[in-house]
Design a binder for these strands. Structure first.
Lengths: 205, 205
DNA sequence: AAATAGGTACACAGACCTGTGTAACTAGGC
DNA sequence: GCCTAGTTACACAGGTCTGTGTACCTATTT
């Protein structure tokens, strides 16, 4: 039906721009005019691709929903590596907290927003849980929740303090929790600058 | 100078109402008309007490800034009790996350908002730190930061999930961190339903 | 060349927002 | 009784917001 449009990326461009502005400045703070002006298109074009601002918000959150992916590294490396990448993201000047938490804080009781936010948080918690199960942790569920708390805690703290060290604090706490659960964690945790990088395929689960 | 006004609480009433609406529905979501209408006063009266909405927002955050107070309970009870009161607040239906984090998320780069938010977070962290020093914890500073992460993490998680159990998960993690730092924590942590309530005045610091 | 899909320019409706101006009212203090 | 401070009702300025309507333009496809 639809012939390929001349510029196949107009919808993407709109969404990408909306994403950036919504995330950096807040959803309520950005009007559709601002988004259109930023791209240099007319507001009419924007509304030809998205029926309403609400639809754009929904698409924005859907775009941000990137479920954590399991790599071939060891479970411990993956878990602790989460906090390393958090620290990297905190250091970027365009980091402004968790888009889902922010959206819930901003839009309050909006059902659909809350729903996707919960789904996102749960996806990460389950990712942690699976890794913990692989490590043979007894109460993987509870520990996964606690790790998730550390992630969101460091994000919230960095949002207000602008201090990437929050990620390292979370990593140290996570290390203690893992060790307490009987998980063997490589010696020098700290900044993880060049640790022993042995890649054992997978421990007995 | 000012003779006592007939209704000495008008300014308070405005502030209290603004607080409730700002917190529950978001600062940007609430207009001054809405606040005035809620109290049943004219918008003019509101502006006679606060020169601008910005001033009202500032007063709102100042009002929310309640520094944690040290009680006569044992340091461990005070630290872990923090998570018990969090759980109670999570269970209240009018809980909507941390007002400071929410304000930063909503108002973005606003300097003064960020400033008061940082001050609030730091006041709690220092409260933790002092208690940990009393307990003779070596790196009280680092552990205080980690406890703060658990607090904010549970708040963020409860904001999206609406699950007061996040507070208990944080409490359990905090218990592990405390024990790991050499602090003796009473046996049955869990829900803390009637633990041994020995009140020792103060441990060797 | 004609048709079609998509974009542009621009005005506009209707709502809401912050903040002000003004005249009238109401109560307590002198 | 009168003054004063606080309040009220109400209009309004000037801005922003979402969303629509309309007429024109510009490529690509057929």
């Amino acid at each position: 039906m639809a012939t390929l449009p001349a510029k196949p990326d107009m919808k993407d461009r709109i969404l990408e721009t909306a994403d950036r502005l919504f995330y950096l400045q807040g959803i309520r703070a950005i009007g559709v005019d601002t988004i259109a002006a930023e791209i240099g298109i007319s507001k009419r074009t924007l509304y030809n691709h998205f029926p309403s601002k609400d639809a754009l918000i929904t698409a924005y959150l859907a775009r941000r929903f990137v479920a954590p992916r399991t790599s071939d590294k060891s479970p411990v490396e993956q878990i602790l590596g989460t906090f390393d990448s958090l620290e990297r993201r905190f250091s970027a000047k365009d980091f402004r907290g968790c888009p889902f938490v922010n959206a819930v804080a901003e839009l309050g009781e909006d059902r659909s927003v809350r729903k996707v936010a919960v789904a996102f948080k749960e996806s990460r918690r389950l990712w942690f849980r699976d890794l913990l199960v692989q490590l043979g942790v007894a109460d993987a569920d509870a520990l996964a929740t606690q790790l998730a708390l550390l992630v969101d805690g460091s994000i919230a703290q960095d949002l207000v303090r602008n201090d990437p060290a929050m990620a390292r604090a979370a990593k140290e706490a996570a290390t203690v929790l893992l060790r307490n659960a009987g998980v063997k964690v490589g010696g020098n945790i700290a900044t993880n600058k060049r640790a022993t990088k042995k890649r054992h395929s997978r421990p007995a689960s």
